[in-house]
Design a protein around this nucleic acid. Structure first.
Lengths: 145, 145
DNA sequence: TCCACTTTCTACCACTTTTGACCACATCCT
DNA sequence: AGGATGTGGTCAAAAGTGGTAGAAAGTGGA
């Protein structure tokens, strides 16, 4: 399971070095193929193909006429691309995502259990600074967290 | 169960020596892997992975679109990092937390039953000086504490 | 339609920097 | 005095970076 936040850099060529902490798990559990996409254009998501397939299987349960499925695919296919990780542990971030999510230079790579997220430093910090509402505290309290 | 408050030091390299009192329990009950994070950026929390997983399981009950869950994960993932304890009982505190929670030099390590907390001396003192509210007294009273 | 040329990609090599595992010593406490 | 605890420092291995050469893709002209 991927956890936590590790800094990384995207070089001139748009290659993201996957932090060693995450690379270790990838080497032992997954291959070198990834599907990189986004559901909002602000944050890039990197899925080991195996994990993305699970999502596809769930989607397959919905009709092709289902408007929610259509809209989801419209977004995800817009940003999405298959990529190969090289021997040094780098993946080429899709051009379109580098622009829309401002993925360049220093970035934060988040472990979201089954997949990775890439956020620009600004977005990362900004989202972390949002304060909990009374509602949030109630919800989390009820769960016993 | 971890209890009480033991002083410790964080060295130049950012390594925290886990007080022997807590180390003993860790050796007999847990492994060497920890998830270090924070829910407010002011106080570091050190969870044996096993304990952190319990929290993840509770969170799994909420939808991924739940705003409270999102805010919680944005914070917790922002500060979080997996770490290994070395043979001398030291863990490397995540850079981002050392800065935001002023974790360096002398610190206080609190045992919070299932996990440890690390506070700068100032924060430690400050939080202990806060007065109980009427609301607090009511809650505790109802529990019979 | 096919070939020649140009441009872009990508796989991989070689080097630099950082990390963390481990050794050895210092200090405390009984 | 001797075990347990805490501290500092080292150095080899791991992580990270930049660059290049050969392959593939793209382009245009005959």
């Amino acid at each position: 399971m991927f956890r936590g936040n590790h800094p990384a850099r995207v070089d001139e060529k748009g290659r993201l070095k996957v932090p060693a902490e995450f690379k270790r798990l990838i080497d032992e559990r997954y291959g070198t193929e990834f599907y990189i996409t986004s559901r909002d254009g602000k944050v890039a998501e990197i899925y080991p193909v195996e994990e993305w397939r699970r999502i596809e299987e769930k989607l397959a349960k919905l009709s092709n006429f289902n408007p929610s499925k259509k809209r989801f695919l419209n977004k995800v296919n817009y940003y999405g691309q298959m990529v190969e990780m090289d021997a040094q542990g780098r993946v080429l971030m899709p051009q379109i995502l580098r622009e829309s999510a401002a993925i360049k230079g220093d970035v934060a790579v988040y472990g979201n259990l089954t997949y990775l997220e890439v956020r620009s430093m600004e977005v990362s910090k900004q989202l972390a600074e949002e304060q909990f509402t009374a509602e949030d505290e109630k919800t989390l309290d009820e769960l016993g967290i």
